[in-house]
Simulated assay, not measured.
Amino acid sequence: MGALDFLSDYFDISRPRKKRKAMQTVEIKVKMDCDGCERRVRNAVSHMKGAKSVEVNRKQSKVSVTGYVEPKKVLKRVQRTGKKAEFWPYVPYNLVAYPYAAQAYDKKAPSGYVRNVVQALPSPNAPDEKFTTLFSDENTNSCSVM
């Protein structure tokens, strides 16, 4: 009976299982002036449970953490180092329809990036967007004459 009791502990369905966090990449904007700031932020984040890799780009003021971590916990850990931190507010320039819209263009943004704001995205009901995508090469339902 000892072996069956041992196996029943592993297959017990009454006990809830812990959900595993999803693998994700968290990007945070942190102002870092020197090697000491960079080292302090890197050490704080790399010792987190679930963090697989940490990339620090001091020129862009960006920290990327990949692993089984929660974004809010990573942000709190970086803020505990004494640095002002926020989630990465920028998107690549080529993904935005209107990069020079109000509040989208930011002089402090790294090259090739603009701020992620609602005004920079096209409205789905805009007629000019519908006409430009209607006869696109990527549209498989477009006119066969093209």
Rank of each mutant, 00 (worst) to 15 (best):
M1Y: 09
M1A: 13
G2V: 10
A3L: 13
L4I: 13
L4S: 13
D5H: 05
F6G: 11
L7Q: 11
S8W: 08
Y10W: 10
Y10G: 13
F11P: 02
F11Q: 12
I13Q: 04
I13N: 06
R15F: 04
R17L: 03
R17Y: 03
K19C: 00
K19E: 12
K19L: 11
A22Q: 11
M23P: 08
M23Y: 12
M23L: 15
V26G: 02
K29S: 02
K29H: 08
V30W: 06
K31L: 04
K31S: 05
K31T: 09
K31W: 03
M32W: 00
D33M: 05
D35H: 01
D35F: 01
C37F: 00
R40V: 15
R40Q: 15
N43Q: 11
A44Y: 08
A44W: 05
A44T: 06
A44H: 01
S46R: 09
H47G: 07
H47I: 01
M48C: 07
K52R: 14
K52Y: 09
V56L: 15
N57D: 14
R58S: 13
R58I: 14
K59T: 15
S61I: 02
V65Q: 07
T66V: 03
G67H: 05
Y68A: 12
Y68E: 15
Y68F: 15
P71R: 06
P71C: 03
K72G: 10
K76E: 12
K76I: 08
K76D: 09
R77K: 15
V78Q: 04
V78M: 10
V78R: 01
V78N: 03
Q79V: 06
Q79W: 06
R80N: 11
T81R: 07
T81F: 01
T81Q: 08
T81A: 09
K84D: 04
K84G: 01
A85C: 00
A85F: 00
A85T: 02
A85W: 04
E86M: 07
E86G: 01
F87D: 07
W88A: 05
P89L: 03
P89C: 00
P89E: 01
P89F: 09
V91G: 07
V91W: 05
V91K: 03
P92W: 02
Y93S: 03
Y93T: 05
L95A: 04
V96Q: 01
A97C: 07
A97Q: 10
A97N: 08
Y98T: 10
Y98H: 10
P99C: 13
A101I: 14
A102K: 14
A102D: 12
A102Q: 13
Q103H: 12
A104M: 05
K107H: 08
K107Y: 11
K107E: 15
K108V: 02
S111Q: 14
V114E: 00
R115G: 07
N116R: 11
N116Y: 09
N116I: 09
V117P: 01
V117I: 14
L121S: 00
P122F: 07
P122M: 07
S123G: 09
P124V: 05
N125D: 15
A126T: 14
E129G: 10
E129F: 08
E129C: 04
K130T: 12
F131S: 14
T133S: 15
L134T: 12
L134S: 12
F135I: 09
F135N: 12
S136E: 05
S136N: 08
E138H: 12
T140E: 06
T140V: 10
N141R: 13
S142A: 14
S142D: 08
C143P: 02
S144E: 07
